[in-house]
Amino acid sequence: MSKYQDVANYIEGDIIKKKYHCRLPEQVNLAQKYKTSRVTIVHALKILKRKKLIKTVKGHGTYVVSKPIPNFFLNSGVSENIGFTKHYKKAGKLKSNVITFKLRKANDEECKVLNLNNDDQVYDIIRQRILNNQPTKLEYTIMPVKVIPGINLSVLHKSVYSYIENTLGLKIGKNDRIISAEKADAYDMKYLDCTKDDPVLCVQQKAYLQDGRVFEFSRARNRYDRGAMYSSSN
Rank of each mutant, 00 (worst) to 15 (best):
N115V: 10
D198R: 05
L74E: 14
K67H: 09
Y140S: 10
Y187M: 13
K46C: 01
D124S: 14
Y161C: 02
K35T: 04
E110C: 00
I82T: 11
V113S: 02
G169Y: 01
G169I: 04
L170D: 04
H87V: 13
V7S: 01
L45G: 04
D6Y: 14
K174W: 07
I41L: 05
Y187V: 06
A106K: 03
L94I: 15
T40D: 02
L53G: 04
S2A: 09
S96V: 07
V145T: 13
Y20V: 05
A220D: 11
C194Y: 06
T85I: 11
E109D: 12
D119I: 07
L94W: 12
C194W: 07
K90R: 13
I47C: 08
R221M: 12
Q5G: 03
V57D: 12
S162D: 15
D188S: 10
Q121V: 05
F73W: 10
L45I: 13
D198K: 07
A91V: 15
I54D: 01
K33N: 00
T85G: 02
K18F: 14
F101Q: 09
V113E: 06
G173P: 09
V113W: 01
I172A: 09
R23Y: 06
Y230H: 13
I16M: 13
T100Y: 06
M229G: 05
A8F: 14
S37P: 03
G92C: 11
K33D: 01
L170V: 01
S76F: 09
A106P: 05
K206Y: 01
L74H: 06
V57R: 15
Q204R: 13
G173N: 09
T85N: 09
T40C: 08
A8N: 15
S162Q: 14
K171A: 12
N175F: 10
D193N: 14
I69G: 01
N117P: 06
Y208S: 04
C22L: 13
N107S: 05
Y63S: 11
T56L: 07
A31S: 03
I82Y: 12
I125H: 00
D198W: 07
D185F: 02
L116G: 04
P68H: 13
E26C: 04
Q121D: 15
R221N: 10
V160G: 03
S66D: 11
